[in-house]
């Protein structure tokens, strides 16, 4: 289980997080909701060890992640799919996947190239293409596949539906369902409540770097003023 308690973070003088707490249980899909600038991406970067100035507690299956460098956090079983995708533009699709490859891990599904190409058929056809030659949707697929190559047990998906065509968003929803079916835990940050509802088990809302709501989508629907206040719906 991934546990974040009272997390604060800053970039230089700018305080971004003011005490975020959340939990991601085994084989659970949790949506981290909030507007632009609410602190969703920063929360994920903190978990991944990509933010230096932070306080609080981050642990995964009991192991403290606060002071670990990103590669150790990855090796602990957490996969990260950044919002900006950050594929390697001058590497081929196959090489991008190779960078992500890690040995199999106990208690996590093992992903083979064949399995990934089944999940992302477009990538199979474009193995020899450079990363920069892919469309936005294909790049999004590639980053997810690249992260899965590391055989993580939990995945942080930062705004996977952002800026891609509706048909790909649908494919993305199927992919997330498949990840859950394989036994992964997924923390997914979203601005789109409808997409989040379709893929996640429960919701967390943050605003101005602090927790505002935590609970089921049914409860959230019962209190429309909450989503009205904190989300752009």
């Amino acid at each position: 289980m991934l546990k974040v308690e009272n997390l604060t973070a800053r970039y230089g003088r700018a305080q971004i997080l003011n005490g975020v707490s959340l939990e991601l249980g085994g084989n659970e899909v949790v949506a981290l909701l909030g507007r632009n600038g609410a602190g969703k991406s920063t929360t994920m970067k903190c978990i991944m060890g990509l933010v230096e100035q932070k306080t609080g507690v981050i642990s995964y299956d009991g192991a403290d992640l606060m002071r670990l460098p990103p590669h150790m956090i990855c090796r602990a079983g957490i996969g990260y799919v950044p919002e900006e995708r950050r594929i390697f533009p001058e590497l081929t699709v196959a090489e991008n996947l190779e960078v992500g490859r890690r040995p199999k891990r106990d208690g996590a599904p093992e992903w083979t190239l064949a399995h990934l190409f089944e999940l992302f058929p477009n990538l199979a056809e474009r193995q020899g293409n450079l990363g920069k030659q892919l469309s936005g949707g294909e790049q999004q697929m590639l980053t997810i596949a690249r992260t899965l190559m590391g055989n993580p047990s939990a995945v942080l998906l930062d705004e996977p539906s952002e800026g891609i065509a509706p048909v790909i968003v649908e494919q993305m929803a199927r992919v997330i369902a498949e990840l859950k079916a394989e036994g992964l835990s997924v923390l997914i940050s979203e601005q789109n409540l409808y997409f989040a509802r379709a893929v996640a088990d429960r919701a967390i809302i943050i605003e101005k770097g602090a927790l505002r709501y935590e609970g089921s989508f049914a409860d959230l629907d019962a209190h429309p003023e909450v989503s009205q206040q904190y989300l752009a719906v």
């Binding site: 990509l50 460098p69 990103p70 590669h71 956090i73 950044p82 992260t147």
Partner: peptide, 8 residues
């Protein structure tokens, strides 16, 4: 940084 986040 991304290479680092991928476990290298």
């Amino acid at each position: 940084e991304m290479v680092d986040a991928l476990g290298v």
